[in-house]
Design a protein around this nucleic acid. Sequence first.
RNA 1: GGCCCGUUCGUCUAGGGGUUAGGACGCGUCCCUUUCACGGACGAAACACGGGUUCGAUUCCCGUACGGGCUACCA
Length: 511
Amino acid sequence: MENKRVRVRFAPSPTGGLHMGGVRVALFNYLFAKKHGGDFILRIEDTDQTRFVAGAEEYIINSLKWCGIEPNEGVGFGDGPHAPYRQSERKEQGIYKKYADQLVASEHAYYAFDTSEELDEMRKRLEAAKVAAPQYNAVSRQNMRNSLTLSEDEVKRLLEAGTPYVIRLKVPRNEEIRFHDIIRGWVVVNSSQVDDKVLLKSDGMPTYHLAHIVDDVEMKISHAMRGEEWLPSAPAHILIYRYLGLEDQMPQLAHLPLILKPDGNGKLSKRDKSGLPMFPLNWSDPRDNTDYVGYKETGFFPEAFINMLVLLGWNPGDNKEIMSKDELIQLFSLERINKAGAKFDPEKTKWFNQQYLRKKTDEELADLFMPMLKEQGFEVKKDFAVKVCKLVKEKAHFVTEFWSLGSFLFITPETFDAGVLEKRLNPQTHGFIAELKNALNDVSNFNAIDTEAALKATCEKTGIATGQIMQLFRVALTGLAGGPSLFETMELIGKEETIKRLNFFLEKNKV
RNA sequence: GGCCCGUUCGUCUAGGGGUUAGGACGCGUCCCUUUCACGGACGAAACACGGGUUCGAUUCCCGUACGGGCUACCA
């Protein structure tokens, strides 16, 4: 068991868009599998028919693809030796019922016929009696309608009459359950804290508790990584493995810390004030009729998104922060995962994207930017787009900012920064701009070097220091108080446009 | 409420019985610069609290506080 092939799975239920917390669980599984040359499986846990959301499964698959953390086995990824990988389909094959029946036969599970009204009543009764943890368990089951309290004949009669029933796990009254978690070490819980979990629902579907165990064993999963929210039910799972005689095939457990909200308390939810997305891709949720924006559409690179996520709760042990997927695979280890939940930091998330933005070549950026330019109505040649990217990227965190940062390269400014005008515009500087315009008009080879020379010459001629007029010149040319090199800007927009802009400025701002 | 898990700068974290407690984001100052940004330098900023154990605890143990999770025929 110790040395069996590494096989891990990501097993979401298709009840909505895949949240970034889910992406991180998938990521950890992926990295671990790749690190050990193992398999990464996508299993769809669609056992709750009432919460099923159409399109969710496809969304999950597309998200994993965009993130570059693709399973090599499972739904949407070519299936594999353990198909089907959808639990609803596996249920049709009777896989889960078989195990549930085995548990009943060995008297570790039983039939329960209680209606939801009866269950409600029981809880109310227990609450009224000030029972600390009102639950269906070794004590309360004695007052309920199940195969433990009913006569054999009665049970048989109910079953034959088609009375709805569930199968529940018979949890012992007072027994220590201990299990080892790779991240948390030994955890001990008394069985009195564990309720008699429903294993098989009245619609014949298994619950998560039964289904994931059956599938993990049948699919030969070696390590089960999942969110910390599963820790409280882990003891029940241990019992199921044990009663099924499958303890030696149990995967090693690792309960991952949760991602917490940036401000305030609690775990991350679908919508957050931080302004950053919670989903990898745009997601239209049919349940609350809301459109959620994705990291992709916000302009994030998948590498940056992944890099940010992996460092929420894990680190390589040195101070390295920017890591490629291959490096992550190389460096990843479960032992270095933290125990405590991590607050998600929007500012640092943007910083990650900026780091990746700077690593891209201008050509790569141009490929991304040109479609956005086209949307704005500007179709330009690639080499021009490359030059624009080179100028505009310095300040940006996202390619999606390029347009607002560089629109002045395409659109002649009609308004001018009022603050600079007030501070710098006077008859002398106005005259200077006019003088400069003429000098620029005489530049035959209109490149950054020659235009800069023209400016220097004009400064010397008029006796005005460069620092005195650059700001105004910038505003005259771009309308803005800040931006990339003016000489590069002029080279890009060309002589004709430069002169035209300066004329317009001089005309509009007479003093 | 009960049970479980956790707690190092504001945030992500390194470290670990004796350290000037390290890095990153963000913030501030300065340098570079025509501006904004980038880059560089510097700075402010943390071991939740109380008891033990120990020559010595931020590190180990126990409490407390605080935070998180769970408490469904949901996963």
